[in-house]
């Protein structure tokens, strides 16, 4: 799938927001794959870079709200790591827009939906 997006979400906030999204009747755009991790704190540079290198157009990470990580600071670490990768990518002449992380509360299905759509629009996957 050349024109694909990957959504990595954590088992807590991200998952609940995704469930709320689907229960409200919002659906993901086509070409979007999902992948669940126990905590966004597990995401590391290599994982993101290898995924992008394999032709995925963009990676969207949905974590828990700050201060609300079950593992204390997994989401904050992930946010910083993604900031680092974004900078690395833009330094390398690839636009940093291909990676994005946002945090969601359990009820923010609508916001998750619009965030994913915005992101899909930004990286050029419709």
């Amino acid at each position: 799938m050349e024109e694909s997006l990957l959504i990595i979400y954590c088992s807590e906030g991200g998952r609940k927001a995704l469930q709320k999204m689907s229960s409200e009747g919002f659906r993901l755009p086509s070409g979007v794959c999902t992948f669940e991790l126990p905590c966004t704190g597990r995401i590391n540079d290599v994982m993101l870079m290898e995924t992008l290198q394999n032709g995925v157009r963009g990676i969207f990470v949905a974590g828990c709200r700050e201060e609300n990580c079950k593992y204390l600071d997994g989401n904050k670490r992930a946010l910083r790591r993604i900031k680092r990768i974004k900078k690395l990518l833009s330094d390398a002449g690839i636009e940093g827009k291909h990676i994005e992380m946002q945090t969601f509360g359990p009820d923010e299905g609508k916001r998750l939906y619009s965030a994913i759509n915005d992101f899909a629009g930004k990286v050029g996957v419709s």
């Binding site: 540079d45 992008l52 390398a92 690839i94």
Partner: peptide
């Protein structure tokens, strides 16, 4: 690993 990926993608 990260460097390799970045160079490949650049």
């Amino acid at each position: 690993k990260v460097m390799c990926s970045a160079i490949r993608m650049a």
